[in-house]
């Protein structure tokens, strides 16, 4: 027993020594020091086109400003992302850009960055306030843009008369963006119940397989569904597949067309708009958000005071204004095989 206790005690002492030594680090170089800046960028995932486009836009923005990039992808693991942020702090980066997994698990990461005196800005996904303080986040105005997108779809649908049966595909409701899009959808239909009745609310948790199963089930339970809004364009392939299986995949103007709108503005949405299957989508301006995010980190380094939320107003694109607005749609700029 004594031998093992000695091992345990030695390990404990060594570890506690490390704890103590870890607190005696020299401070990071002061802002304005004459050296190239390095930003740590941690994305929760790169599994959708939007996040890939976002990472590319941030890379381009940093490159344009001659700022070095230290990139990390957490692959959906909040604990891994926490470790990545601590690695950024160890590397003494000059700023951190974070796409958190959700609004809650990122709070210790933000606290760690603040403790180390490193400015941190959230890209496209806000978090909960910390002790009354709201970390700076650059986000799309999910509620307003969704409301505008769905309202435009309702206006077009009601031209033909009749009452429409609607399905909405919800995102992960632990994600503030998903909640905002749900609220925007509900707000757009408020007072328009005589035109559109919501008969199915399909949870996807941002998972394509789950979305497809939910859409198939909803179409079986309500074969008269003719109005669909998806909280993200990356779920469109699942919806198209289900519509094809149900014999309800038709272009705008064709008999049996299902009114279809989305959110994001990805390459699939652009293709479906040009082919005439998708009626509208709310486009997040990824280039605007990337530019604002990098600027926000630099402003925080310079000691400027910023609002907790920097909004990207985005815009609605439809078949009617496609030619005019496509140059600003990031999905139209992303080359993607059909």
């Amino acid at each position: 027993m004594k031998t093992y206790l000695r091992y345990a005690f030695a390990a404990l002492l060594a570890g506690l020594a490390l704890v103590g030594c870890g607190q005696s680090q020299p401070p990071a170089a002061p802002p304005g020091a004459d050296r190239p800046l390095t930003f740590g960028v941690s994305f929760e995932t790169l599994q959708t086109e939007y996040w890939i486009a976002g990472m590319d836009a941030i890379k381009a923005e940093l490159s344009r400003r001659n700022i070095k990039l230290l990139a990390a992808i957490a692959d959906g693991d909040a604990n891994r992302q926490y470790e990545q942020v601590r690695n950024f702090i160890t590397r003494k980066v000059d700023g951190i850009i974070l796409v958190p997994k959700d609004a809650k698990t990122c709070l210790p990461m933000i606290k760690a960055a603040h403790t180390a005196g490193i400015p941190i800005v959230l890209f496209n996904r806000p978090c909960d306030p910390i002790d009354g303080f709201t970390p700076v986040a650059v986000v799309a105005d999910n509620v307003a843009l969704t409301r505008e997108t769905v309202a435009s779809l309702v206006e077009r649908a009601q031209v033909g008369g009749g009452r429409h049966r609607a399905m909405v595909i919800l995102g992960d409701l632990g994600d503030v963006n998903a909640v905002g899009r749900r609220d925007g959808f509900e707000a757009a239909l408020k007072g328009r119940e005589a035109v559109v009745e919501v008969v199915a609310r399909v949870p996807s948790e941002w998972n394509q397989e789950k979305a497809q199963a939910g859409v198939v089930n909803a179409l079986q339970a309500h074969p008269d569904i003719d109005f669909i809004f998806t909280s993200s364009d990356f779920l469109l392939p699942s919806i198209v597949s289900a519509l094809k299986a149900a014999g309800k995949y038709h272009r705008t103007g064709e008999t049996g067309h299902v009114w279809l709108a989305g959110f994001d503005g990805d390459a699939t949405a652009y293709r479906l708009l040009t082919e005439g299957y998708l009626d509208a989508t709310g486009v997040q301006d990824v280039y605007f958000e990337a530019r604002q995010t990098v600027e926000a980190v630099l402003d925080l380094r310079a000691g400027k005071s910023l609002p907790g939320t920097i909004l990207d107003p985005g815009f609605v694109i439809s078949q009617a204004n496609l030619q005019e607005r496509a140059p600003r749609m990031w999905g139209a700029q992303v080359k993607k095989a059909p």
Partner: peptide
């Protein structure tokens, strides 16, 4: 690898 052998990183490694 900058920082790998720093005390701060060794503390991180231990915590991880």
């Amino acid at each position: 690898i900058p920082g790998l052998a720093s005390w701060e990183n060794l503390g991180n490694l231990l915590s991880n």
